[in-house]
Every structure is written in C-alpha cells, then in structure tokens.
C-alpha cells in the first residue's frame, strides 16, 4: 500500500534535498527536485514559489534555469520540522 504524504512531509523532503543532495553549489534544478520529491511540475512550482516567498529557499537564475538552495531560515525550519516530526511520531501521528 502506498503511503500518503502530508503537504508538510513533501516540504520537508524538498528542503532536505536542497540541503543534503546538491550536486553543485549553484543549487538544485526543478527537474532534480521533481524527481526527488516525486510530484508534478504544477504542484512543485506552487510549493517552491511559496518556500521562496517565505524565505526558506533561495532562488538563483543560472545557465538559463532556476536553481534552488536552502536558506539559513530554511535550515532552522528543517531542524524544527525534523524535531517535531519525531515528537508527533511518538503519538503515532505525522505532522
């Protein structure tokens, strides 16, 4: 049975990818993030726009493509997300 991922979990996966799995310093391309997060282009575009506007991701335009890197606020959010994710898992719940 496939596991249903919450919106928060998808955001956590995107931020983790931009923090831990970048091939170079310029950031992750949207194609790379789509493959890692396994969601549609339309949906990830909305999420990325939201994360950039919240200051959790930094957007760079290099080599004709948008690239995304995690910001300092994004790292703090991700740390809080991971801590409270474990907290809610103790109650058998997902945040």
């Amino acid at each position: 049975m496939t596991e249903y991922r919450t919106h928060m979990k998808i955001i956590g996966e995107i931020l983790t990818t931009t923090r831990d799995e970048l091939a170079d310093e310029n950031g992750a391309t949207i194609t790379f993030l789509i493959r890692k997060a396994n969601i549609s282009h339309v949906r990830i575009s909305r999420i990325l726009t939201n994360l950039v506007s919240q200051g959790l991701l930094e957007q760079n335009s290099s080599q004709g493509a948008c690239r995304y890197r995690i910001s300092h606020s994004g790292r703090e959010f991700l740390q809080a997300y991971q801590t409270f994710s474990k907290f809610s898992e103790n109650f058998g719940l997902a945040i």
């Binding site: 809080a80 997300y81 409270f84 809610s88 109650f91």
Partner: peptide
C-alpha cells in the same frame, strides 16, 4: 507547550490539535 512551539515553528495542523 511543546506542541504549540512546534505548531508556531512549522504550522502543522497535527501539532495544533495536539
């Protein structure tokens, strides 16, 4: 309090309910 701090930091509805 911990749940509320978590809610304030992540905006998670689960933590809000907790």
């Amino acid at each position: 309090s911990m749940s509320y701090i978590g809610f304030k930091n992540t905006g998670s509805p689960t933590l809000f309910r907790l």
